[in-house]
Design a protein around this nucleic acid. Structure first.
Length: 200
DNA sequence: GCGACAG
DNA sequence: ATCTTGTCGC
């Protein structure tokens, strides 16, 4: 039976090889949505990239990002030749007012492990993480740990990592940091960001 | 009422 | 998300 409920646990022996990053951008008038999905190999090399574009069908509203970005993101992901084992999403997962951000939405719809990797905070309180790459502190909202504030690179603003679906926070943090190369953003999301911008 | 507010 | 000028650093 179908239940749109986030699963906060990774599959047994989870060690994803096909890691995909997705990102969405909009035309300057906000009327057209562009999505890009990139699949990386074990050495974080680009193995496949796909794109999609379609009219935006929902305005941006804080807390309702999914309604604007999910459709075009799904369209791009559907074009991948190889199915993802893990998807990194540009936005929040559990760290959301209704505990169901963009990353959760995509994860449940695709029935795949997803992680939300946001560049800024939507909600939650946190202590500034330590200065070294990999340092992190919990993101707490209403008495719950909803994510982690991760210093992906020294001397950079931290990332806001939260689980999307079929994963746990500790694994999510490890996998995000493992896909960070020379930049603040992990390679999957960073390359998807580049490609979706290039589409315009 | 006031401030905060993924992309 | 998008628009901006300059600035710093590899």
């Amino acid at each position: 039976m179908f239940r749109h409920e986030v699963v906060e646990k990774a599959p047994e022996g989870f060690a994803p090889r096909r890691i995909v990053g997705v990102d969405v951008h909009f035309s300057r008038d906000g009327a057209t949505a562009f999505a890009a999905a990139v699949r990386l190999g074990g050495q974080l090399e680009l193995e496949e990239s796909v794109q999609a574009a379609e009219p935006a069908r929902f305005p941006y509203r804080t807390g309702f990002l999914s309604f604007r970005e999910v459709p075009v993101a799904l369209a791009a992901l559907a074009r991948l030749a190889e199915p993802p084992e893990l998807v990194l999403v540009d936005g929040q997962g559990l760290a959301h007012p209704r505990r169901f951000g963009f990353a959760c939405h995509l994860g449940v719809l695709l029935d795949l492990p997803t992680i939300g990797v946001a560049k800024s905070r939507l909600l939650g309180r946190f202590a500034e993480p330590g200065p070294a790459a990999g340092d992190w502190s919990p993101l707490e909202d209403k008495g719950e740990i909803v994510g982690a504030v991760l210093r992906s690179k020294a001397a950079c603003r931290p990332l806001f990592v939260s689980i999307g679906h079929k994963i746990d926070l500790a694994t999510a943090i490890t996998l995000v940091q493992a896909t960070v190369a020379r930049h603040r953003l992990p390679e999957p999301t960073r390359l998807a960001d580049h490609l979706s911008r290039a589409h315009t």
